[in-house]
Design a protein around this nucleic acid. Structure first.
Lengths: 213, 213
DNA sequence: GGGGCTAATTGAATGTCATTCAAAATACGA
DNA sequence: TCGTATTTTGAATGACATTCAATTAGCCCC
């Protein structure tokens, strides 16, 4: 019987291939010309299909964007979990930070799209998106935990998320070029300042707590 | 002779009034319906002029947005410099953080627009925008300085910017609702965790440095 | 090998958008 | 009252998202 392999007018691509094609060209367009460069017509041009074809695979352009967001967060999540632990907790955090900042800067426009594009205020955010965010957060928390031996899991998570959001802020400002003194070229430096000082603070507290026992 | 007061078809508004009207209605629209809700036609509707009128006062819609960005950063800068010093450096930083987070959350959509809207890659960013960013950065630096007595001005500025960008990251994530666990309702809590731990780190280093002398 | 079935693909149609600019409207000075 | 300088208009252009009836091509069965 054969797999139901492209029954339409052209058999160039399976539906899954087409989906990937659309996502890939959207990425290309956004990374090259920013979010404003993206249009259904432009995507269609790039993959040599008509604009209407898009709407067989995706609800609308927003749907494409949301899918890209999940894809990106998946990638970041994967890259962070793939980071080796390193000798010390500080090194581990440094490596995680570097991976995060690096991804954001290498995918400047796409990354910015993730935060530029607020979902319309009734829209359902894909659970996968939140899942990936939670995984990222858990990874940071795991790296920070050794420095917070006495704290509860909640405190560790809270501390990890505060730090992670902080690092995110540095990348956000670098990527959007809003501060002349904080750019892609020195973002990692700033991130290191933030994380190392923050860790010093955690360690100092830990010390006090130990001393107080 | 009389001031050149509205010579056109209607004498309802001076050019300056018209400019303010356009900016004010743009703010209203963005805050109510987000950036996608903004259109030249919608602004025109709101101020009861024709769309063409916009283009007498502003180059284009991007120009309106850039102007709003400068306006906002001016406001934030003003509010931060107006924050009273407080008894301790920690309290001062807390107050600054609260003001910053508060502004961002109260002007959610507008604030997000500031970072959503990357200028096209040849555009000249208004110097006023960077000026305000520098003022904000200097304010934080001033508040942090007492905790870093021995450091150079450059080190103080660097440390201040890292922390400020960090606080910004927390507001950014809260405002964009990308992390389910970090929302507008607890952003300030996270910000406090970040700043207080960071300050602990600075103080600890300071202590070591003193001890090493 | 051919006819029908089914699903993929199209592209024209609708309505919206930013932006331009020649024409119209109007206040003021003379 | 007229002419002039200026503001304001709104129709025109071209691009956009999205829809959907019509078209096309692969597959199955004969």
């Amino acid at each position: 019987m054969g797999i139901n392999f492209a029954m339409g007018r052209r058999s160039l691509h399976t539906p899954e291939e087409l989906r990937s094609l659309i996502l890939a060209s959207s990425r290309t367009i956004i990374e090259k010309h920013g979010l404003p460069g993206l249009s259904a017509r432009e995507i269609a041009r790039l993959i040599s299909y008509s604009p209407g074809t898009l709407y067989n695979m995706f609800e609308n352009i927003d749907d494409v964007l949301l899918t890209l967001q999940v894809e990106m967060l998946q990638e970041v999540s994967d890259q962070l979990t793939a980071v080796p632990k390193g000798a010390t907790a500080r090194e581990h955090i440094d490596a995680l930070t570097a991976a995060y900042v690096d991804y954001a800067i290498k995918n400047r426009h796409l990354w910015n799209m993730l935060f530029a594009h607020l979902p319309p205020s009734g829209a359902t955010i894909p659970p996968a998106l939140h899942d990936h965010v939670l995984t990222i957060s858990a990874t940071i928390s795991g790296a920070l935990a050794p420095l917070m031996g006495q704290s509860s899991a909640q405190e560790k998570d809270h501390a990890a998320r505060a730090l992670w959001a902080g690092v995110h802020g540095i990348t956000a400002i670098a990527v959007t070029e809003k501060a002349p003194v904080l750019s892609a070229s020195n973002a990692l430096e700033y991130a290191h300042t933030l994380t190392s000082t923050y860790i010093d603070g955690l360690v100092a507290r830990q010390g006090f707590a130990v001393a107080a026992q």
